[in-house]
Each structure stands twice: as C-alpha cells, then as structure tokens.
C-alpha cells in the first residue's frame, strides 16, 4: 500500500493533537529531597533565573509535566540545611567530566551514550555540559554566551576561517556550526566515513548516485576522501571553497599529458571544467564530459569523427 502525502499529513496532524491532549498529565523528572521554598528562603531570586527556561521550577508551574526542583540538580540539600556550607551541596557547574554529566543526563537522557557524551571528542578532554551551557541564564539554548557564534569561543581559529574569501555563511548567521557538526549523527570522532552525507543534506544535487561515479567524491570508495578531497568546508581563498585554484584541483590526481601536447597544446589553456562539466558524477559519460560538448565547440572535435563523445 502506498501512502499518499495527504494521508500522511492527516495522520501526523491527528497524532500530534491526540498526543498532546492525552498525555498532558504525564509527569517525570526528579523529585527533590528538599522543597524549593526552603532553598529560596536563603537563595531568594534564584527561581527567576530559571523562569524563562525549560528548567522553570515545578513549584512555580500549574499542572507541571516534569518535576524540576532545586535539588534535582543540587544534591545534598538535607545536610546543607543543617550546615549551609558550599562544601556539602553539589554544584554541577563545579564538577568535572562525567561527574557533572551524570546530573544533567538524569533528565537529558538522549545526550548520554553514543549520541553525544561517551564517545565524543569533547569527552576525551573531560569537557562537560557546563563548558557550553549555563543553567541559570536566559541565553538561547542556555549557552554561556549567545552573542557570538558559540563554538568559536574555544575553536578560535574558525573566526578567521569564516572570514576568508569563499566561506560558508556562518558569520552571516545563515547557518551555524551545528548545521554540519551534528553530535547526534556521528558515532566516531576519528573517521569521516559518513561526511558526504552531511554535505548532501544541503547540496543534494551533487550527491548522486550517478551512472558514472567520480570516485574521489565518494567517501566510501577506495579513493576515499569524499567532498573534502577537493573542498575546504569552513573557508577558502578559492571559489566554491575549493582547496586549490582552477585546474590545480584536478591536477592533484590527474595529469592529462595528451591535453598539453595534442593539437599544439591548444587545450592546455582551458579549464578542465570547460569540458568535464559533471565532475561530481555523470549519467552520460565516464569522463564526465558535457553532453552538449559538440554544440559548445561547434562540433569540431566530435562531428568530424576524430573523437567519440561517449567513450
């Protein structure tokens, strides 16, 4: 049975409405050991730093669907009441590595494991949620600083990468680092095996499959590399984020000596892409030649019978 788009749309809509209504009473989270009022007697005003966020205290909400209290994150409240010292209550922001992450992932379970924490490059340096997020803030996504492109705080050289002549529009606020570096999609920080698929999300026309594949564009192939074999993804001095200028990109792997000698070297002054237009892959020609090539060059090469286009 083939589902029509209309039917899928209707199912999706009805499903959404029903779910929201039938489960409005679902409640989860971590009930606190000490009630919020007790905490706020001394820490007056702290509830306001959470009120515009998903961490708004449940005690401040009618019909809460998640239990969020001060002691959901700050453990040891009972002892702290007896002896109000900073030593006897946990502050996740001051913990390091996995100890801090354990607090957040009580609720943000999707971020534990391979999705993010556990095998991520940040983990290896004992970085944790708190290195990027500040819970008691009103910043977007609770980032420490939402004024700048966030990742540049640590990856400082990227500030200039995106200022080079050809660049992905991060400084223009059209995309963000997370548009490409999606934590939830990769399971291995050392390998770029699936890198092409990330590029294809926005550049599908280059993605294939093609009848005649250009192996350099496929990260899975023996030639490997994929898109980054020719392109510099953050910023480059060349058009289209290319690593090398003009023909030099092709000359990394190919040295077409015939082009430099035949007909007095007439083709040596042309761009490779003048004829090999379908460099990402072709349906017409294993040399990735433009199917309109005879017309483009007035048929001299092909109509004369000297060269055959589809070979």
């Amino acid at each position: 049975m083939k589902l029509s788009k209309k039917l899928i749309g209707n199912i999706f809509g009805v499903f959404l409405v029903l779910i929201i209504f039938f489960f409005t009473n679902s409640v989860y989270g971590n009930e606190g050991q000490v009630d919020d009022e007790t905490c706020l007697q001394c820490h007056d005003g702290m509830e306001k730093t959470l009120s515009f966020t998903a961490h708004r205290l449940s005690s401040q909400i009618k019909n809460p669907t998640a239990h969020i209290s001060c002691s959901s994150c700050h453990q040891g409240g009972a002892t702290h009441i007896e002896d109000p010292s900073v030593e006897n209550i946990t502050n996740p922001a001051k913990l390091s590595g996995y100890d801090a992450v354990k607090t957040c992932t009580q609720c943000h379970q999707a971020h534990i494991g391979l999705d993010n924490y556990g095998f991520d490059a940040h983990t290896n340096q004992q970085l944790n949620c708190d290195n990027c997020h500040q819970v008691h803030s009103r910043n977007k996504s609770l980032l420490l600083d939402d004024k700048a492109e966030f990742c540049i705080r640590c990856h400082t050289e990227k500030a200039t990468d995106f200022a080079r002549r050809s660049n992905h529009p991060v400084k223009q606020n059209d995309i963000t680092c997370l548009s490409c570096h999606q934590f939830t999609k990769r399971q291995n920080d050392n390998l770029a095996y699936d890198l092409d698929r990330i590029c294809q999300d926005c550049h599908p026309q280059e993605g294939g499959p093609f009848l005649y594949e250009h192996e350099a564009t496929n990260a899975y192939s023996v030639e490997s590399g994929g898109c980054v074999e020719c392109h510099e993804p953050h910023g480059s001095e060349n058009n289209f984020l290319l690593k090398q200028k003009d023909n030099q990109v092709c000359l990394q792997c190919h040295f077409p000596s015939g082009h430099y000698t035949a007909h007095g070297g007439i083709w040596s002054k042309y761009s490779c892409l003048s004829c090999h237009t379908d460099v990402h892959g072709s349906f017409n020609n294993k040399m990735f030649l433009d199917p309109d090539l005879p017309a483009k060059f007035n048929g001299n090469c092909y109509n004369s019978g000297c060269h055959i286009l589809n070979k």
Partner: peptide
C-alpha cells in the same frame, strides 16, 4: 503541507486554552 500547519496551529490553540495566561 498546509494541512499540517493547520493541525499544528489547532493543537497549539487547544493547549493554550487549557492554560491561564
């Protein structure tokens, strides 16, 4: 696609009606 938007808007309105502003 427009229908999906309508459903989403209806869902939001219904949710909003249940709350006190």
């Amino acid at each position: 696609m427009k229908k999906n938007f309508v459903y989403i808007v209806i869902a939001l309105i219904l949710v909003m009606l249940t709350s006190t502003f």
